[in-house]
């Protein structure tokens, strides 16, 4: 396996009884990438991640993390991974600092290293002054933060975050997002699962979309819209209906046209910006444009077309 691949799966499948949770997933995540793993609830994201970190055994297929095959109980692979589970739960009787200290020891960090790293992480995740408090006294948001801190304790090469902002209020979500951006700055590969489009859009440069256990798309965020070509429309509102406008718009090969009173909708099949051309055609036919607006074509539309509307439920 090429060394620049942080994660690679080959026909990875997981069955729970008769239900196929992950179906022949072929995923590649390059090193030093922020890779979003997007899908609606129940898509198979957490199952895939659990196979990556050794909590679940694949039914069939294989996967490699940082060039090492993952099969069975493999602590060597986990040494290079920092993992934050979805809704992480830690022993409530430990303080945040104790938790990080114990986990740091498990990674083989020396006392000096731990003494340096723990306050740094506590500060980074915004738990300054609360590190000595028992986790049982932490709010949900604080538990998410300590979850991120423990994933970073060993300064891992790969960080896997499973729905890191689930259950957080909007402020907490923004803070988590900023933390992820900080992690990325240090050159760490981040694999980030979410069912929230906006979150992935703001944090990741690559995305894999999964639905019902099947991979629907994998590539850059820029490519996803163009490849899917989903629902990009140009809506034009005229002062009043003009007979020649519809005919003029129908001559354009990059769109199909629908007319409704004084509103014309062009369903575009091009990635080019055609507004000037359309504007000239409309005014040339005697129409007066009140409004011209491009709709669709964003990640949400692409996502909808990939997973279907039922996936958004």
């Amino acid at each position: 396996m090429p060394e620049d691949r942080a994660i690679e799966t080959h026909d990875l499948s997981k069955k729970y009884g008769d239900r196929l949770a992950v179906d022949r997933l072929n995923l590649t995540v390059a090193s030093k990438q922020v890779h979003g793993f997007l899908g609606p609830n129940g898509a198979g994201k957490s199952t895939t991640i659990k196979m990556m970190v050794g909590l679940l055994r694949p039914t069939t297929g294989s996967l490699s993390i940082l060039g090492r095959g993952v099969s069975g109980d493999n602590p060597k692979v986990r040494r290079e991974i920092g993992y934050m589970p979805e809704l992480p739960r830690f022993p409530k009787h430990l303080s945040g600092e104790e938790l990080l200290d114990i986990y740091g020891r498990m990674y083989g960090m020396s006392k000096t290293e731990r003494r340096g790293r723990i306050p740094e992480l506590i500060k980074m995740v915004g738990l300054d002054g609360r590190g000595k408090d028992r986790i049982g006294k932490y709010s949900k948001g604080m538990q998410q933060r300590i979850g991120i801190a423990q994933a970073l304790i060993s300064d891992p090469e790969l960080v896997i975050l499973d729905e890191p902002s689930i259950g957080l209020d909007p402020v907490g979500m923004v803070e988590v997002r900023n933390m992820v951006k900080d992690i990325v700055k240090s050159g760490t590969t981040v694999f980030f699962s979410s069912h929230l489009l906006a979150e992935v859009q703001q944090v990741c440069d690559h995305v894999t979309v999964i639905h019902l256990g099947v991979m629907r798309y994998s590539g850059t965020l820029e490519d996803i819209s163009s490849k899917v070509m989903a629902r990009r429309r140009l809506v034009i509102e005229l002062e009043k209906p003009v007979d020649g406008v519809l005919a003029a718009l129908k001559t354009m090969k990059f769109a199909t046209v629908e007319a409704n009173m004084n509103t014309y909708t062009l369903h575009l099949n091009t990635r080019e910006d055609v507004r000037a051309e359309v504007s000239r055609a409309v005014t040339g036919a005697g129409g007066v444009i009140l409004r011209m607006q491009e709709e669709g074509g964003g990640l949400e539309d692409a996502f909808l077309s990939l997973v279907g509307k039922e996936g958004m439920a």
């Binding site: 040494r79 290079e80 022993p91 009787h93 430990l94 104790e98 114990i102 740091g104 020891r105 498990m106 990674y107 083989g108 960090m109 020396s110 290293e113 731990r114 340096g116 790293r117 060993s154 300064d155 891992p156 090469e157």
Partner: peptide, 29 residues
């Protein structure tokens, strides 16, 4: 910053786990 390639001795990890267990037992009352 900690070095990335730290190799934990099995004994050190085992002691960390024992510490984890004792805290669990004692603090859980």
């Amino acid at each position: 910053m900690p070095t990335k390639k730290n190799r934990a001795g099995t004994l050190a990890a085992f002691i960390a786990l024992l510490y984890y267990e004792f805290l669990w037992n004692i603090r859980k009352k």
